[in-house]
Simulated assay, not measured.
Amino acid sequence: MASLSFQSRAGRRRAALAGTLLSAIVLASCQSAGMPNADMIRLDAAQGSEQNIASLTQVIQNNPRDPEAYNVRGSAYGRGGQFELAIADFDQALALNPRFYQAYANRALIHRNLGNREQAIADYNAAVQINPNYDAAYVGRGNIYRQAGMLNEAYADYNRAIQLNSTDARAYHNRGLIQQRRGSHVEAIEDFSRSISISPRSPEPYNGRGLSYFAVGDQDNAFTDFNRAIQLDENVAESWANQALIYEQRGENDRAARSYARAAQLDPNYQPAKDGLSRTRGI
Rank of each mutant, 00 (worst) to 15 (best):
N131C: 04
H173C: 14
A169H: 09
N71T: 05
R279N: 04
Q58P: 02
V128L: 09
A256E: 10
N116W: 03
A15C: 00
Y145T: 08
A264W: 04
D191E: 10
Q51I: 06
A2Q: 09
S166E: 14
A137M: 11
A244F: 09
A76L: 12
D39W: 11
G19T: 13
N269G: 08
H111L: 02
R258P: 00
Q163L: 14
A93D: 03
A156L: 10
F6P: 00
D91V: 09
P205R: 04
D135A: 15
A137D: 13
T224W: 09
F83I: 06
Y101L: 12
Q51Y: 10
Q119P: 02
I196H: 07
A93I: 00
R255P: 03
S8M: 15
G81N: 11
R170T: 09
E204I: 04
Y213Q: 06
L27D: 05
L177C: 11
S75M: 15
E252Q: 06
E84G: 04
Q163G: 14
L114I: 03
L232A: 13
Y101M: 13
S75K: 15
N269I: 08
D123C: 04
D218P: 05
Q219A: 14
Q249L: 08
G80K: 08
F214V: 01
P67T: 11
V72G: 00
L22F: 04
S259E: 09
A45T: 10
I189Q: 02
G81I: 09
R12P: 02
S212D: 15
A169S: 15
N235V: 01
S32D: 14
R262W: 13
A54G: 13
G176C: 04
R12F: 06
V236S: 00
